[in-house]
Simulated assay, not measured.
Amino acid sequence: MEPHDHPARSNPARRQRGRSTYLIDVENAGELARLMQQDRLLTEALGGLLPEEGISLPETGRVLDLACGPGGWLLELAFCFPRATLIGVDLSPAVVEYATAQARSRGLDNVRFQVMDVMEPLAFEDGSFDLINGRLLWGFMLPAAWPRLLAECRRLLRPGGILRLTEMEEPLSTSPAFERLMALGCQALKRAGQSLSPDGRHLGITPV
């Protein structure tokens, strides 16, 4: 499904439509496995799928997962809310196909996955969702795209709906090699124009 064009919201300086700005080849089998493991570990570290106080999803609610990858978080949520409608969107057709196969193999008919670019207007009606979720979007989001995405989420949320974003800075370590790796990664993001940090020393997402 192709998102509707909104010329007033387009930015000619941003990436070519459909071109991935993700740091790693997401369609690599090893990366898909890593993302599934990352989903599991992040959910566990946070204390559950929806551990925050004040977040309650109606039994028949509607959820949108932004840049869902192989769908780990959404698939687990589907087991907990069998009457809800859960939709995951991702830029990669291959990843969407993989997530869809995961849902079918687990007998989950309340979740579906679609190809969409979250840095473009999303092809859903106003007020379509009770909850919009995004986790670790810093890995591909361009700085100028953040305000547009947040505005789009406000459009898509129902009255009283919740936008749930989970982001992070690079981890601290006592390992010189790991610290060097994180520093190089932050510098690479800065040079690629994908950093929110003023000097490229950090990711810069959490202060924003």
Rank of each mutant, 00 (worst) to 15 (best):
R106G: 00
E44Y: 08
A144S: 00
G61M: 06
I162Y: 08
A145C: 15
P198W: 11
P147M: 06
E169R: 02
A67Q: 04
G61K: 01
L91M: 06
S175T: 11
E53V: 11
P93V: 03
E170H: 04
F140L: 11
L32C: 09
R14I: 03
L181G: 06
R112F: 13
T166D: 07
G134T: 06
T166E: 07
L108A: 01
R17T: 07
Q114H: 14
R191S: 13
A8H: 00
T100L: 14
A192E: 04
A123D: 10
Q194E: 03
L91T: 01
G30F: 00
L74I: 09
L35K: 03
W138Q: 01
L77G: 06
D5N: 04
D25R: 08
F81A: 14
A101L: 11
H4V: 13
A45L: 15
G48E: 10
A29W: 13
R135F: 15
E169H: 05
P58A: 02
A29P: 05
L64E: 07
S10M: 03
L50R: 04
L163H: 05
V89G: 08
L156E: 08
P159S: 10
A67M: 06
R155H: 08
P159G: 12
L41T: 13
F178H: 13
E53R: 15
R106L: 02
E2S: 02
P147A: 02
T21F: 08
E44D: 15
Q38H: 12
R9A: 08
E52Q: 12
L189Y: 13
D90M: 11
E59K: 15
R106Q: 02
H6I: 11
L46Q: 14
L189E: 01
L156T: 09
E44G: 07
E120H: 09
M141T: 12
L156S: 12
R106D: 00
G204P: 14
Y98P: 01
C186P: 09
I132G: 13
E97P: 04
P51R: 11
R40Y: 03
A29K: 10
E53M: 08
G204F: 12
M141L: 15
Q187N: 13
G139N: 10
C80K: 07
A33M: 09
D130Y: 02
G71Y: 06
G72M: 13
Q38F: 09
